[in-house]
Simulated scan of single mutants.
Amino acid sequence: MHFQIGSALPLETTLRLVEPGACVLPPIDAYRIVVHLSRATRTFCRETGSAALREIGDIDLIPSGDTGGFDAEAAYQSLEIRLSPVVLDRVGAEIGRITGANKLEGRHMLRHDRIFNLARSIEHDLSVKSASDLLYAESIGIALAIQLLGLRDEPLDPLARLSPIQLKRVLTYIDEKLDQPLTLEILSREAGVSNSHLRTWFKVAMGLTVHRYVLRRRVERARFLLLQGELGPSEVALEVGFAHQSHMARWMRRELGCSPGDLRRTAINR
Score class of each variant (00 low, 15 high):
residue 208 L to K: 15
residue 159 L to P: 03
residue 146 I to E: 15
residue 99 T to S: 11
residue 225 L to S: 02
residue 64 S to G: 05
residue 198 L to F: 07
residue 26 P to C: 05
residue 142 I to S: 02
residue 197 H to W: 04
residue 18 V to C: 09
residue 91 V to E: 01
residue 139 S to E: 09
residue 250 R to G: 00
residue 191 A to M: 06
residue 51 A to Q: 11
residue 180 Q to C: 07
residue 118 L to Y: 06
residue 191 A to K: 00
residue 59 I to W: 01
residue 237 A to N: 03
residue 68 G to M: 01
residue 141 G to M: 04
residue 32 R to H: 12
residue 127 S to Q: 10
residue 97 R to F: 13
residue 193 V to W: 00
residue 65 G to C: 04
residue 15 L to E: 06
residue 76 Y to D: 01
residue 256 L to H: 00
residue 211 H to W: 08
residue 83 L to I: 15
residue 261 G to Y: 05
residue 144 L to W: 04
residue 221 R to A: 14
residue 252 M to T: 03
residue 75 A to I: 04
residue 24 V to T: 12
residue 247 H to K: 11
residue 219 V to Q: 04
residue 28 I to W: 09
residue 1 M to R: 09
residue 50 S to G: 08
residue 9 L to A: 12
residue 224 F to V: 09
residue 233 P to K: 00
residue 246 S to E: 14
residue 176 E to D: 14
residue 102 N to A: 14
residue 214 V to W: 05
residue 88 L to S: 01
residue 190 E to D: 06
residue 163 S to W: 07
residue 45 C to R: 08
residue 244 H to A: 11
residue 139 S to W: 02
residue 249 A to D: 10
residue 117 N to C: 12
residue 75 A to Q: 11
residue 221 R to W: 01
residue 6 G to A: 14
residue 153 D to V: 06
residue 51 A to F: 06
residue 62 I to C: 00
residue 210 V to Y: 00
residue 173 Y to P: 07
residue 268 I to P: 04
residue 29 D to H: 12
residue 118 L to T: 02
residue 79 L to H: 00
residue 164 P to E: 10
residue 67 T to M: 15
residue 125 D to V: 09
residue 187 L to K: 01
residue 243 A to W: 07
residue 38 S to N: 05
residue 57 G to D: 03
residue 152 R to D: 14
residue 146 I to C: 11
residue 162 L to H: 01
residue 153 D to P: 02
residue 84 S to D: 09
residue 119 A to E: 01
residue 170 V to L: 00
residue 103 K to D: 07
residue 227 L to R: 13
residue 260 P to S: 00
residue 217 R to Y: 07
residue 183 T to E: 05
residue 149 L to D: 11
residue 217 R to C: 08
residue 269 N to S: 14
residue 30 A to V: 05
residue 142 I to H: 02
residue 10 P to Y: 03
residue 181 P to R: 06
residue 56 I to K: 15
residue 116 F to Y: 15
residue 35 V to P: 00
residue 265 R to H: 04
residue 267 A to V: 08
residue 209 T to N: 02
residue 165 I to N: 08
residue 77 Q to P: 03
residue 31 Y to A: 00
residue 151 L to R: 00
residue 81 I to S: 01
residue 100 G to F: 08
residue 149 L to Y: 05
residue 169 R to G: 06
residue 154 E to T: 12
residue 136 Y to L: 10
residue 255 E to T: 12
residue 109 M to A: 15
residue 153 D to G: 06
